[in-house]
Design a protein around this nucleic acid. Structure first.
Lengths: 244, 244
DNA sequence: ATTACTTTTCCGGAGGGTGGAAATGGTGGA
DNA sequence: TCCACCATTTCCACCCTCCGGAAAAGTAAT
């Protein structure tokens, strides 16, 4: 059971974020489908708390309070993860990422880039669908409602290697569970390979750790060896988070 | 004028942030004074949207959605700051900067360069350690965990004036608190001096404003006068971001 | 096994939220 | 300068949805 007005306030905030952090009342109305009066009232509430600010041209924008709270949230996971990501980079030589499931999307929370010249672009904060990424598969493999997620999101084709059939995807998740790691062999972006493992904190999967890079370099690493690295680091990270 | 349930949901989020991003239901109840049932219902709403996560021990923590929205808001900081930085440049004739703390690093978020020939190189996006910069000192002076930050980062020498001893650094932060501004007299880069002040949003320091330039020119400005300028602009900026 | 605690669920009453519509304010064109 | 148009803000009566006490369920420690 959700609180309607809170849900709608979040809709308003997200509409603002999707407009690039700035929008007029009517733009928000168009995006959310809520009546003007309602949106205005919600905005006044957020305004009074600093979660939204109003420009001189009466348009609304995301407010400073979000920077502060967002910082606290990000520091929590990202700071805890940093040493582990660094260790992964040292071990593998490739870019290491931490991602969490947020609703039906995968969100990259932290990254430590590879020291090599050719490397992945920083993508912290990026949202992607789970079916075409190793982190997404790792996160969903441990969940019973994976099929429901795919029903909602669909399996849009990203490259010619993307798995677009639900049955195949569920079989893939079975393989992930069986071998303990997930792969993305250019399914999200051609030429980019990636291996991911789930991070548990005492039972539940709450994040996924991955290593990604150019296909040739990733494929050159022994697969079981890389998986062992990832699993070890994921376990250490999981218990570190769990104990504090 | 305000929507009660939204207001309370924000109270819950802020209570979580004040507990360091993690708290049990009853801790939130103690802090907010709201009844258990109400808090639980609000948390369920925030949970469903990813604004809050639930750890395996049933405690609640700030969620990934806040990281994403906070990121959008932070990018907007640069836009908001521009007129204030411009004013600082007009007043002082020197390059003005805005920086925030990200993890244990200082990140330059925005800059308006001095119109003079000799001026600092653009460094938006640059990450530096806090101990050798005025903005870093200004950001850490208001935090109780400054010593912990230095323990993690160390105090690497950047120039022969860099403060490399923790006790001296903590004393320096005391001076910063006492006089209300921080100085960097060639501690990050020889010949470059800098003055910075914290920007508050209703209590907490969330950014630092600075003016920097060649040692001779910065030293030629009356120190108290420059500090007064910075403080005034920082206050205006802080209130503009937080409310309005 | 029992105790002490925290979290979750439940439900009837009523207070607070809703949203249509009117009023106000701002902007660009004539 | 004035007007017309669009966006924002305010208003209010209805009624839906949120409130919160209290009991149940779950968890951890003795």
């Amino acid at each position: 059971m959700s609180v309607q007005s809170v849900d709608r306030a979040l809709d308003v905030l997200e509409a603002l974020a999707e407009q690039g952090g700035q929008a007029g009342l009517s733009e928000i109305a168009a995006r959310t489908g809520l009546p003007y009066g309602t949106i205005h009232r919600l905005l006044q509430t957020l305004l009074a708390r600093g979660y939204v600010r109003q420009e001189s041209d009466r348009r609304y924008a995301l407010g400073g309070a979000l920077v502060r709270i967002g910082g606290v949230a990000e520091r929590m996971l990202a700071v805890w993860a940093e040493p582990y990501l660094t260790r992964l980079v040292e071990l593998s030589g490739e870019t290491a990422n931490l991602a969490v499931l947020e609703g039906d999307f995968v969100v990259y929370v932290a990254q430590v880039p590879s020291p090599r010249r050719l490397r992945m672009f920083a993508e912290v904060g990026r949202r992607v669908l789970p079916h075409s990424t190793a982190v997404g598969k790792a996160l969903l493999a441990g969940r019973a409602d994976a099929a429901a997620v795919f029903r909602r999101t669909g399996l849009p084709r990203r490259t010619d290697r993307t798995i677009t059939v639900t049955e195949e995807m569920l079989a893939e998740l079975g393989r992930v569970r069986a071998r303990g790691y997930a792969l993305d062999l250019g399914e999200e972006e051609s030429g980019v390979h990636c291996m991911a493992v789930p991070v548990h904190d005492g039972g539940r999967t709450f994040a996924a750790l991955s290593v990604s890079g150019p296909a040739e370099r990733i494929d050159a690493i022994d697969r079981e060896e890389l998986a062992a690295m990832l699993r070890k680091v994921a376990e250490d990270f999981g218990t570190a988070v769990f104990r504090s």
